[in-house]
């Protein structure tokens, strides 16, 4: 269990993490979601005692991180892919970490085997691909057979096979009753792995909810209809007690009705339909709405302004 209480981190004027209070529970995968720059990594570094909080407190199983005897046996973390000396072999990287926490050498071979790096164990880390680096980081996290595991953006830069492997691993770790805390900036990724969701934006807590509840609350469904006989369709829908709104591209959107019902209604009135499709708002959209105000770096999504006529001045001159 990881407990955060009023955890705050300021860098001068800038607030990176703002009064975060939540608990990460055992037996489930807790997703830690937020746009880039929301403060996820800073929060995770404070959990590990790497960064000092400006205010507030964080405890691992009720204890401060630096009070843990052999901390790797309580909590294992993957912070980033390239966290190893490039000139050191995977085996020695894990061995030095194991020795510092009194973990037997046998365990180094076990975790190398578990992540599939046994064949390259004696190779220097500089020759590792991003995926292999990620596996080495995960091996280090598993080294002390800890009850709590923390992964910062574990699927970043991985190929589909690696992504699948990590998802399965996180689920199986949670199924063993361990606490699994994983950060991501992708809602779609979280929807596949997380049971619980903690959402932050600009360092502030935006949601702390179960995945099921989040989906239920944020999933709007509607039916999209397109017909060359648009006006008649509107009348028919209106008579059927259905309100339709225009979607802007000539199609109509019908909220809260089944596509079957709309289709049958149109058929009864011998209307031609060019499109009849059930739609579901993606969780990605729900997430973007939730964090819209707290995104640090906005891309300009509006239509670009009229191009400047710089050529005119040249012609006139």
């Amino acid at each position: 269990m990881i407990e955060l209480e009023g955890l705050t981190k300021r860098y001068g004027e800038k607030v990176a993490v703002d009064d975060l209070t939540f608990t990460v529970r055992p037996g489930i995968v807790t997703g830690f979601l937020g746009p880039n720059g929301a403060g996820k990594s800073t929060t995770m570094r404070m959990i590990l005692g790497l960064d000092h909080p400006t205010a507030g407190d964080v405890r691992i199983d009720g204890t401060h991180y630096d009070r843990l005897k052999d901390p790797l046996t309580y909590i294992g973390a993957l912070l980033e892919a390239k966290g190893a000396h490039p000139g050191r072999s995977a085996y020695h990287h894990l061995l030095c970490l194991a020795q510092s926490n009194g973990i037997p050498t046998r365990r180094v071979h076990e975790v190398l085997d578990a992540v599939g790096l046994t064949a390259v164990a004696r190779k220097k880390a500089k020759g590792f691909s991003l995926g292999m680096g990620q596996r080495l980081g995960i091996a280090a996290a598993l080294l002390g057979d800890p009850r709590i595991l923390m992964f910062d953006e574990p699927v970043n830069g991985l190929d589909p096979e690696g992504i699948h492997w990590i998802r399965t691993l996180m689920k199986s770790l949670a199924a063993q009753g361990r606490t699994v805390f994983v950060s991501s900036h992708l809602m779609s990724e979280m929807a596949l792995t997380a049971d619980h969701l903690v959402v932050i934006g600009q360092g502030r807590l935006l949601a702390d909810t179960s995945m099921a509840e989040f989906i239920e609350r944020n999933s709007r469904s509607w039916v999209r209809v397109r017909s060359p006989q648009r006006e008649r369709l509107l009348d028919v829908l209106h008579q059927g007690g259905i309100t339709a709104v225009e979607s802007g591209d000539g199609a109509l959107e019908v909220d809260g009705s089944k596509a079957e019902y709309v289709g049958e209604l149109a058929a009864r009135h011998r209307l031609v339909l060019h499109e009849l499709s059930p739609q579901q708002a993606s969780l990605e959209e729900a997430f973007m709405q939730l964090t819209a105000e707290s995104v640090e770096y906005h891309a300009h999504t509006g239509p670009p302004g009229p191009p400047q006529q710089w050529g005119d001045g040249w012609k006139r001159g």
Partner: peptide, 16 residues
């Protein structure tokens, strides 16, 4: 080397 390779984070997580 601890700092230039990022190893420092793993090292201090292991030895706080």
């Amino acid at each position: 080397n601890e700092y230039s390779t990022g190893m420092i984070r793993a090292s201090l997580a292991a030895v706080p």
